[in-house]
Design a binder for these strands. Structure first.
Lengths: 207, 207
DNA sequence: GCAAAATATGAGCAAATTCTCACATTGATG
DNA sequence: CATCAATGTGAGAATTTGCTCATATTTTGC
């Protein structure tokens, strides 16, 4: 066994000099192609070309096309987890309304930053072999949000965390996809729904 | 010009006896493959095989694989529009809370009935050539919901309709996908968020 | 510098995929 | 029935795609 036994990478680990650049270029190219052309546009040859790398190099680091997608998914989840962690730490001890507000802004920011990638990847994930790490990260994300809600006395925190995440993402993504650029206005609208879900009613009625 | 000039079907229109069965079998098979195996599993040969039809027949009605997907999307949208139309008629004159409750249940029912298809198809739609009919149907759906909200004095009804649809779908779909079967409980949770969004506050606070 | 290890290359093979076309079968019509 | 149009068939041509491997280049350790 070499020193790569800790990594869930199915093939050779690159960690040495320019290899990392090759590895990164492949992932970046794959992400780009996926968001631009959709799942059917993703071919290994095209990825290699876009990455400015030979097809042979691609297969040095990824045993298959699916492995590239799987790694993209892991990357995205790790990023999400990091963002949520930072957010959770930031709102520690603050009132729930504030925490919710921050969470919504963070989610919008995250989706803007990863433009459309989440959609496609989540979709593809369903038809990929079960990945332990990805699943573990998803659990951690739910747990973090659940802990946050629990600390404010929300009932069934895990259930609520699941709903809250979907509520925020479900509203934010289509709006952003359709070209909405007033993030603050969007956040305020989502906030109304989120606070309603949590039973923290905003004052005035629109109707 | 023959009598098929009214249909946006790029190839021959089937309307005659068993031809319709073939046509339907192809669409059904494609839908099944898409939901089971995802976008990458969809190949014309496989569709023909699953439909119990020769590959030649498939190309008699669809000029390309994309045309099949496009038709599936149109089908789904038409179904959505019909469901919403029925729902809107049913809640005519009823209070907004009731209308919202019905809309949420209808949406859940619709998603249960079309299991996962919406996700994949919506995703693929983004990378397909612009389809006038599909777009028109989407507009009609928004308009219907907007009219409903407007009749109850909701401000910016089109904006609100867009948000409401995404809120409901965004919360319902992941829950159903994860195996939730208590539709009523799910509907009640979504209702909290929806009413919160609309400013129709529910009574008690959970926190 | 030099050998050995790490990394990169890309022609090309096997399999998959899209789609055509010449022909067979079925159904309708008088 | 006979005829013709509508429908169905599937071998296979043309292309694409996933991936390998023999070889070339670069980097590292000494």
């Amino acid at each position: 066994m070499t020193r790569l036994d800790h990594a869930p990478l199915p093939k050779k680990s690159p960690r040495q000099a320019r290899a990392q650049a090759t590895y990164d270029a492949i992932l970046q190219a794959a992400a780009h192609i996926l968001t631009e052309g959709g799942p059917t546009a993703l071919t290994t040859n095209l990825v290699a070309e876009h990455a400015g790398v030979s097809i042979g190099s691609l297969y040095q680091y990824f045993p298959s096309k699916e492995a590239i997608v799987a790694e993209l998914i892991r990357d995205l989840r790790r990023q999400m987890l990091d963002d949520i962690r930072g957010m959770a730490a930031f709102v520690e001890g603050q009132p729930l309304r504030f925490a919710v507000a921050r969470m919504i802004r963070a989610s919008i920011h995250h989706h803007v930053h990863t433009q459309g990638r989440a959609e496609v990847l989540e979709q593809l994930e369903h038809h990929l072999p079960f990945d332990t790490e990805t699943e573990a990260i998803k659990t951690q994300i739910i747990d973090l949000v659940a802990a946050l809600l629990d600390s404010h006395g929300i009932e069934q925190p895990r259930h609520a965390a699941f709903d809250m995440i979907n509520l925020v993402v479900g509203m934010a993504h289509p709006a952003l996809h359709v070209g909405e650029t007033d993030y603050e206005a969007l956040a305020l609208r989502i906030e109304r729904a989120a606070l309603g879900y949590l039973g923290l009613n905003t004052s005035g009625s629109v109707a």
